[in-house]
Simulated scan of single mutants.
Amino acid sequence: MTVVVSKLMFYLGFAATAGYTFFWRDINDNSTNYTTPSYSAVWVKVCVFVAFISNAVWFIANTGAMVEEGIQGALDPFMLKIMLSSPIGEVTLYRAGGLAVALITIYLLKFKPLKPFLRLKSCLLVLCLFTLSYTFTLTGHVSELGSIARILLMVHVFVMAWWFGALIPLKLSCHYQSYEKLYKLMDRFGTQAAVLVTLLLSAGIWLAIQLVGSFEGLFSSIYGQTLLVKMFLVT
């Protein structure tokens, strides 16, 4: 249960980072005054910080699950060292670094309103998102596949984070944006989503076929049927 909850909290921080990265200009109180924190800045920082802590909890919980000795085994220094050298440890370190850089970058926004810094901030946040996306390729079935499958998985989770991360910023924009700005924002989001969600579904279907071995396997195996239900709900 701890593993599942901590993973969900990481997903929340991942999505919050993506939403802030691509919509922070649109949801700022005053688009010409970057020293004013956006309405979403506080909750984004909280989400990213919680994700950072949850990432450590996820690592410790996985250690405990491996040794099957409860909290004492989960905190054993020797076992923690072994787990750090495993794929789970690699995922934990990459995610910790990505979330830490994202949190620092978001926090520093109000201190450096200059345009060159704003571009640097955007680049750093995108780099953090790619780093977090990359961690999904280090474990699981896709880690055993080739480079194309890994790239598609990164695209899949990247778009997922962008999509869900946009929901809160868009909702907040409805409260204080003018009709003209809100219309343009929603129209742009809808246009982008039409392309990106199609890409998300296409990558998901291709990965599913690769994982079950054939197109027929999507219908004949429990794993494939579960994926089909997931894709149906997303569609």
Rank of each mutant, 00 (worst) to 15 (best):
P116E: 03
L138W: 05
L138H: 00
Q177E: 11
M186E: 09
Y176I: 02
L145E: 10
L120Y: 12
M160H: 07
H175M: 03
Q177D: 06
I205T: 08
R119L: 05
I205M: 13
L218W: 13
F158C: 00
Y176M: 01
S173P: 09
K181D: 15
A166R: 05
L114Q: 13
V126D: 02
W162K: 05
V212N: 13
R150V: 01
F158I: 03
F215Y: 14
C128F: 10
G224N: 12
G213S: 02
M231N: 15
I168P: 06
G224H: 13
S122I: 00
L125P: 04
E216I: 13
A161S: 07
T198P: 07
L170Q: 10
T131P: 08
E144C: 06
E144Y: 06
S178E: 01
L138Q: 00
F136R: 08
L138E: 09
L114I: 04
Y176S: 04
L172T: 00
L152T: 00
V212G: 12
H141L: 13
K181G: 00
F164W: 01
L125A: 04
Y107S: 03
S122W: 04
G213R: 12
L200W: 01
F164R: 01
E180G: 03
W163S: 06
L200T: 08
I222V: 15
E180F: 07
F189W: 12
L228K: 14
G204M: 10
L228I: 15
M186V: 11
L211T: 15
R150T: 01
Y179E: 10
L227C: 13
P116I: 03
S143C: 02
V142W: 02
S133C: 13
M231F: 15
L201W: 13
K121G: 04
F130L: 15
C123M: 10
S133N: 09
F130S: 11
F164G: 06
I106L: 11
T131S: 09
S147M: 10
F189K: 05
G213E: 12
F136Y: 13
T226Y: 13
Y183L: 09
E144R: 11
T105V: 07
A166H: 03
R150Q: 15
L127F: 09
V159D: 05
P116S: 05
D187C: 07
G213A: 13
C128G: 11
G140I: 08
M160T: 08
T137S: 08
F164Q: 01
F164I: 11
K110W: 04
L172Y: 06
V159S: 05
C128N: 12
V195N: 05
F164C: 00
Y176V: 00
L118K: 05
L200S: 06
V229K: 15
A149C: 02
P113R: 02
L108M: 12
Y179C: 02
L129A: 06
S221Q: 14
P169D: 10
L211M: 15
S178Q: 00
L211D: 14
M160R: 07
